[in-house]
Write a protein that binds this DNA or RNA. Structure first.
Length: 556
DNA sequence: TTAGGGTTAG
């Protein structure tokens, strides 16, 4: 704003300021500079503590992202006894600006200082923040408070509680609150679906689809928010038919132009292995945001299409879309998958130098994987040693994994030691170390690790795979013969093994325990859960049907 | 001047 229009603006709001005109001026205030000027004028006229003025100042500062200024206003408020509406406005404003911790602290302070008791609106405002912070204990207290305040749960509070419990991974509570709420609407249904979708087990994911149908049967029409709530559940179990149906539904309902719908569809297609479909959806999104770009770059990365991932990243920069921390996680993961060691190194520097993004744990994890896969284990170890924060289990796990590939026992022992300390319940690290010893025929080491596992009382978790046949998801565990069709499944696996050997396949038995006879080793590998799932799929498929000639059913 | 639900990685 030029200085002449500034003068005009100040004239327009009329000085000396009064408590009625200041809020109006702040509401239409076009810049942070002017908000600060008006704040100064309010302080000079001793109006900064007026609840209307303070509330308007807060909203103006939050609108410009000046949370430090907002907090300064907040700090002057207790002495002036703000009303409950001012506080609620503050809390919702802080929350909307992504300052979840400040929002929660504001409510805690309001309560602790005893000058205002939060009302139901205040509880609604802060629940989302509490969920984002994962503060389950605070959330439970708010739940109790809301129950005391009203006989049955109001829809907004119920939605907030469902959302909070969902973010804190309390599945049972999600359903309980939903059932106890006095009124359900599309928002509470969406919160329920999102909560279950976020925390769904494989076998439960498709039940959400039934929930979606029940919601419609009760006259609650899904809205554009429903689609990104439900899609992650389908994406996570690669339920392509359901995902495709959701796509058709979005097109029919005119939801496709919603950016959340578009990005969630890109992600779903990529996770279901349909990268070309993901790209078609991505290209059709009318205006993309950083999440849409990340979903597509991540989709290429997860399928090892590093060249496409990097190319899309360059297009992103050309389109003036600012990359974020997730973008670089995806780009680095793509480089790591494809063995593009030098490119990965360059992007790791570029993110800091050109984009001002400080590497986080996941970026270091990608770099350790990238260097480890290339056999540069010492360099990976040096990078870990130079990290500005304490490496977590993923970092050491990645190094240990690379040590297995490159049979480096010395570094493996260092990494494993760290892992045993950081994640004492993770049987995987013991098994990995044991496999590394086994590959080097160091049977003493194998036995030592086995004894350690016994002492700690750890067992290796069974491998688990699943396959969807028609609308049912079948779970298969390695070595578990509880599936009703197991005899036929085993028969099919045997047949496939014979066929594979005939075609020249020789399974590697290096990593299996050394004291098992050769034939037994093959048997152990033969009941690998993925093989069982594939075999079940093959014996369940009608003859002459391939996935490409099958029409997607109209599920929705 | 106050309230609820949504997409990406790890």
């Amino acid at each position: 704003m030029s200085s002449s229009s500034l003068v005009h603006f100040l004239r327009h709001v009329s000085f000396p300021p009064d408590p009625h005109l200041l809020p109006t001026a702040l509401k239409s205030c076009p810049s942070l500079l002017l908000a600060r000027t008006l704040h100064a004028a309010a302080v000079a006229a001793d109006l900064a503590g007026d609840s209307f003025v303070a509330s308007s100042l807060l909203h103006a500062y939050i609108r410009f992202g000046a949370t430090a200024d907002a907090r300064a206003v907040l700090d002057t408020m207790p002495q002036k006894k703000p009303n409950v509406i001012t506080w609620n406005g503050l809390v919702s404003g802080l929350n909307r600006s992504g300052c979840a911790r400040d929002a929660a602290l504001a409510v805690a302070r309001m309560h602790a200082e005893g000058f205002l008791r939060p009302d139901i609106t205040g509880v609604s405002c802060v629940l989302s923040a509490v969920g984002d912070l994962g503060e389950i204990l605070v959330g439970e207290q708010l739940h109790g408070y809301a129950v005391k305040a009203g006989s049955r749960l109001d829809a907004c509070v119920a939605t907030g509680l469902i959302d909070m419990y969902g973010k804190c991974r309390r599945t049972e509570e999600i359903v309980r609150v939903f059932n106890e709420s006095s009124h359900i609407d599309v928002a509470s249904c969406n919160a329920l679906i999102a909560g279950l979708s976020r925390n769904s087990q494989v076998s439960e994911a498709l039940r959400l689809f039934k929930l979606f149908r029940e919601m419609q049967a009760q006259g609650i029409e899904p809205n554009p928010v429903t689609i990104p709530c439900i899609l992650p559940a389908f994406a996570n179990v690669a339920a392509l038919m359901h995902g495709r149906s959701a796509h058709c539904f979005s097109l029919r309902k005119g939801f496709f132009h919603n950016i959340y719908v578009g990005s969630a569809l890109v992600d779903m297609y990529a996770k279901c292995g349909k990268v070309r479909d993901a790209r078609m959806v991505f290209d059709a999104i009318p205006s993309r945001n950083v999440v849409s770009w990340n979903a597509m770059i991540g989709g290429y990365a997860m399928h090892g299409e590093a060249a496409n991932a990097v190319q899309l990243f360059q297009s992103m920069l050309i389109c003036k879309q600012k990359p974020d921390t997730v973008t670089f996680t995806c780009v680095l993961a793509a480089c790591s998958q494809a063995g593009l060691t030098e490119d990965g190194r360059c992007y790791f520097s570029e993110m800091q130098r050109d984009h001002g993004i400080t590497p986080k744990m996941e970026h270091y994890a990608c770099m350790v994987t990238l260097l480890g896969r290339a056999g540069k284990l010492d360099e990976a170890f040096d990078l870990i040693s130079d990290m500005p924060f304490k490496p977590d289990g993923c970092i050491w796990g990645s190094l240990l994994g690379s040590c297995r590939v490159h049979s480096n026992v010395d570094l493996a022992e260092v990494a494993a030691e760290k892992l045993f300390h950081l994640e004492p319940d993770n049987a995987g690290s013991y098994v990995l170390l044991s496999n590394i010893y086994a590959s080097k025929k160091m049977w003493d080491g194998v036995n030592r690790v086995r004894e350690m596992m016994k002492d700690v009382g750890l067992k290796k978790e069974k491998g688990c795979s699943w396959i969807q046949i028609k609308s049912k998801v079948h779970m298969l565990l390695a070595g578990d013969d509880s599936h009703p069709m197991m005899t036929a499944i085993i028969e099919k696996v045997k047949q496939l093994n014979i066929e594979m050997r005939r075609l020249g396949f020789a399974p590697s038995t290096d990593f299996v325990l050394h004291d098992v006879e050769e034939q037994e080793k093959d048997d152990i590998l033969a009941v690998h859960s993925e093989k069982l799932a594939v075999a079940l799929g093959l014996i369940s498929k009608p003859r002459n049907i391939t996935s490409s000639n099958k029409e997607p059913p109209n599920l929705w």
